[in-house]
């Protein structure tokens, strides 16, 4: 299967790989997995006092499209409020990376990772 240039770029030079301390109250962690291919994705957001995402890191075990989707998302969420971040749709990711239909689930995974991270943040804040 041919990957688009953008996927290859993110795959070869992934942005923001790594992680933060998940027990830090300002760190939001989203863990998601895709049963279809066994991919696992961890997305972490560092949220400032004002609710703005200051930094983001990811770690993904999966195909090129899954890595590219999560790498792209870490770039997109920076500077956004957590609510704005949840408005990122898998279709935006798929379009930006020109993902073929069989790889759409990789972009769904990345969208769900943002949602899972935001939920984690909200539950941390309310406790």
């Amino acid at each position: 299967m041919a990957y688009s240039e953008k996927v290859i770029d993110h795959y070869e030079n992934p942005r923001n790989v790594g992680g933060f301390d998940k027990n830090d109250p300002n760190i939001a962690t989203g863990m998601v997995g895709a049963p279809a291919c066994g991919d696992v994705m961890k997305l972490q957001l560092k949220v400032g006092e004002n609710g703005i995402i200051e930094d983001a890191k990811f770690k993904t075990y999966g195909c090129g499209s899954a890595i590219a989707s999560s790498s792209l998302v870490t770039e997109w969420v920076k500077g956004k409020s957590i609510d704005e971040a949840t408005s990122i749709k898998n279709t935006d990711i798929a379009e930006e990376l020109a993902l073929p239909p069989v790889k759409i689930h990789c972009s769904i995974l990345a969208e769900d990772a943002i949602k899972a991270a935001v939920e984690d943040y909200k539950s941390k804040q309310s406790s």
């Binding site: 863990m31 998601v32 997995g33 895709a34 049963p35 279809a36 696992v40 961890k42 770690k59 075990y61 759409i104 689930h105 769904i108 995974l109 769900d112 899972a116």
Partner: peptide, 22 residues
């Protein structure tokens, strides 16, 4: 319906373990 393509797994404990194994 299993919906593997659309439904992501969200079981954090299970996925953390997967991550550690990987």
């Amino acid at each position: 319906e299993l919906k593997h393509e659309q439904q992501t797994m969200q079981d954090t404990g299970f996925l953390m373990q997967q991550m550690e194994w990987r």
